[in-house]
């Protein structure tokens, strides 16, 4: 592929759609499956990860000339873990309900492969502004994916969207969709469907 000039828009769109971390790169699967039991949780997790991603991308990019090559991964991990802990503290302080329903998956944002992967693949090679935009694009791509998955699971599994009762009083919802198996199956079907649409489009051209 020819070296494209990286503009703010191209970087943003790249993260949001072309290289969507969840549906295309298939990164960060643990939170994708675990917290998508309701739309609120999905959105909360997505935005928390986005905040960490923007901050860590920016800082890694600013420090990219100072951090020695040999210990760069360790340095990235420290930076990411710091931001994650800050987010965790803020959630505990200001949104305690969300914090308790996301539980252990907040500190586990540290090991979300998307964040480390972006630090290594993008932020360590680009300037801070582009890196922040990349973080925003990737983060929103992740958030969007989580919202889609969690909306589907909440609708099918609890009969609600954003906690608002839709049909649960008339038809018993399929609880299994918000339990572990539902997570795997919904994501599997979604990725399969996206593959199908993409291949159809390519065939048309």
């Amino acid at each position: 592929m020819a070296e494209e000039k990286k503009t703010i828009t191209s970087v943003f769109i790249n993260g949001l759609i072309k290289e969507n971390p969840t549906f295309v790169q298939l990164l960060g699967m643990c939170p994708t499956l675990a917290v998508t039991t309701s739309l609120q949780n999905g959105l909360g997790m997505g935005l928390s990860a986005t905040a960490v991603l923007i901050c860590s991308n920016m800082l890694v990019s600013i420090l990219r000339k100072i951090i020695p090559d040999k210990v760069r991964i360790a340095a990235y991990i420290v930076i990411i873990a710091t931001f994650v802990t800050i987010i965790q503290m803020c959630l505990n302080a200001f949104l305690p309900d969300l914090a308790s329903s996301l539980g252990l998956f907040i500190p586990l944002i540290v090991v979300n492969c998307i964040i480390l992967a972006r630090a290594e693949a993008f932020a360590s090679k680009n300037n801070p502004i582009l890196s922040a935009v990349d973080g925003l694009g990737m983060g929103l791509g992740f958030t969007g994916a989580l919202c889609i998955i969690s909306a589907i699971r909440e609708f099918l599994g609890a009969g609600t969207i954003w906690g608002i009762e839709l049909y649960g009083t008339h038809i018993a919802p399929a609880t299994i969709m918000i339990m572990a198996p539902g997570g795997f199956i919904v994501l599997g079907l979604l990725v399969g469907t996206i593959n199908f649409i993409v291949s159809k489009r390519k065939g048309d051209k």
Binding site: L26, A180, P181, G182, G183, F184, I185, L187, G188, L189, V191, G192, N195
Partner: peptide, 12 residues
């Protein structure tokens, strides 16, 4: 990937 996930769901 998709079929792996669906199998994993059945395993779950």
């Amino acid at each position: 990937f998709p079929i792996t996930l669906i199998s994993a769901g059945l395993m779950a």
